[in-house]
Design a protein around this nucleic acid. Structure first.
Lengths: 348, 348
DNA sequence: GTGAAAGCGCTAACAT
DNA sequence: ATGTTAGCGCTTTCAC
């Protein structure tokens, strides 16, 4: 508990009988040092349990080998894949992941980003509550990658849930449904807007009535209202903004004695933990969230590590890029797909 | 994206027309500086968007204002409350939380702890895969608080799930069950051992047969074996190591056509997300995990911030502690309680 | 009340 | 190949 004093490079150098600079070289760039000396230093360092001070390194280099994942709510199951995906990728490159929960508040998020500057080399911003301008502003001070958002000039990863929703619609049409509800998410949700923009033309194309319900908070509790509204509107199927909401819809329909999928089919989005546990099991749109996390971390690391090519080759002759360099502002879009389970069936 | 250069204290001092030392004082200990000067410095700092360098502070003070939460698996729902609880408490005190996933490996965990030393001021170690000796060793180098573990000399928070399991047993006995199975968790699990040690005497006291099944990996997939073993052993109720396992048991019983709770009652542990979603809803032992996280962070912060009283008052006369100081090694035990849902019923 | 200077642990010139 | 020195941004003596 006393936490003993850590040995510094000086201690190691002294114990090995060399100068600190030599010890530093021996530890960080072997080859630039006599093999015997290097071995000795390394041995001494290990024996003393020497660990380089991250703060000193950071102070000197300006880099912290730390990346933040900024989320509105750490406990929202949808984000688990992101935590895992970014975490795994970061660990592979020796980075430390720090988690920041902004409690669904734009203010907290802005403040967090401000504090993070200097503490981390960059951040992955997921489901941000900030405006495009605020994000762009923050990106001036901190290397940023956004998830499910497009900010000009800032790299991003997109999950094509809108495409998945269209698949959901097609699935329902295939089952004979002609009047279908979409239980919308928060009015401020960027994803929600994209989905509606995709669903409406798709419905027209498929010749079905699309009834937009909501907006609803994307939580179980809101499912009751959504279910009531769906029943009321005379649809035979409802596509919910996310699984949490869909769970609530299922519960409410159960309470009301509306058979699923007998009289009402239900589809969710995200395939969170529990989607295959509920009865009936929930048909839902699965997103490769973990992969999105990996990619987001990838993009960030590429930017952090690939900080070279700044002014070099300024007057080069062969300026033609053979492989067209992907514009960092051009976000990666990941496909999603529908998982059919028992909560959907033929139109009642 | 270009990430402009941050203003340093020097810039602020220069702009305010004072020495760096004065600027430093103005920002950190107002009162030791002329009020006008202080105001001016603060104004300039704000205008320049000055943010003190965490690395420089850390280098100087040896403190990082960062605490790690070390977990075997970030995505295990059981830990969400810990993430949230520790995170909230740490944020309140201005600390940054870093998350470390050890991938269920003692080796990774040890390595993580080693690297963390110097990067963080302390760590909360949950469900550690290390031996008592390894933890005690790590505690020499890093302020540690353990969750669900007792390590002499290291403060800890315990969730009394063993007590909850006894409640579960009593509940079943009250329903007329006389032959009950306990589907055990991993052989290396400290919690599992404690539960068995509590269940056995309780079963004897209550006059019921307790059949210990397993060990099983605490995941859904293992539930099938556990369910089969339970049916085989002729019990009318099974208490599972955790909800994940219980979910698997429910699924398997459903497949086999064994009615729950008609022919078999099922109880889980942890009340994770989904426990009230499955059908029948799972009777389970709820632990105040988030509160445990808060307390763990509390204990750690108390130790980090209250680092005074080391050698002082060595020859004091009034050595009688009026309020008996709680030994840090004396772990806090948090009570748990049973949540009765529909997966338990009268003995078939 | 304020300034000058030392130094935290480390790495990167520069010198030998 | 190795030692010497400067300095990253900050706080903290120590003078004034």
């Amino acid at each position: 508990m006393a936490v003993r004093r850590q040995p510094t490079l000086r201690d190691v150098a002294a114990a090995a009988g060399v100068a600190v600079s030599t010890a530093s070289r021996a530890l960080t760039k072997p080859g630039r040092v006599n093999a015997d000396t290097a071995d000795r230093v390394v041995a001494v360092a290990k024996e003393l349990g020497y660990i380089p001070s991250a703060s000193a390194r950071a102070l000197l280099s300006g880099r912290t080998a730390t990346v933040a994942l900024v989320l509105p709510d750490v406990t929202n199951p949808f984000f688990f894949g992101l935590v895992r995906g970014t975490g795994a990728r970061l660990r592979e490159s020796g980075y430390v992941q720090v988690l920041a929960d902004t409690e669904e508040s734009a203010e907290v998020e802005l403040d967090t980003l401000r504090k993070l500057r200097g503490q981390v080399d960059g951040a992955v911003l997921a489901a941000s509550r900030l405006s495009d301008e605020q994000i762009a502003g923050a990106a001036q001070d901190l290397a940023l990658v956004v998830v499910n958002r497009t900010i000009p000039g800032t790299p991003g990863v997109l999950l094509d849930t809108a495409g998945g929703m269209v698949q959901a619609l097609e699935h329902l049409v295939g089952l004979g449904h002609t009047r279908i509800a979409y239980a919308a998410g928060p009015a401020t949700s960027w994803s929600d807007r994209r989905r509606r923009e995709a669903l409406e033309p798709a419905a027209a194309r498929l010749g079905v009535d699309l009834v937009v319900l909501g907006p609803y908070a994307p939580v179980r509790a809101s499912g009751a209202q959504a279910a009531d509204a769906a029943v009321e509107s005379g649809v035979t199927a409802v596509i919910a903004f996310n699984d949490l909401l869909a769970f609530g819809v299922l519960e409410r329909l159960d309470v009301r004695g509306v058979p699923v999928p007998g009289r009402m089919s239900v589809i969710g989005c995200d395939d969170i933990f529990g989607a295959d546990l509920v009865r009936p099991a929930l048909t839902t749109v699965e997103s490769p969230v973990e992969r999105a996390g990996r990619m987001a971390a990838d993009l960030l690391l590429a930017r952090l590590e690939g900080g070279r090519s700044d002014d070099e080759d300024a007057g080069g002759l062969d300026d033609e890029p053979v492989v067209p360099v992907r514009d960092a502002a051009d976000p990666v879009m990941l496909p999603t797909h529908l998982i059919v389970r028992s909560s959907t069936g033929a139109a009642g």
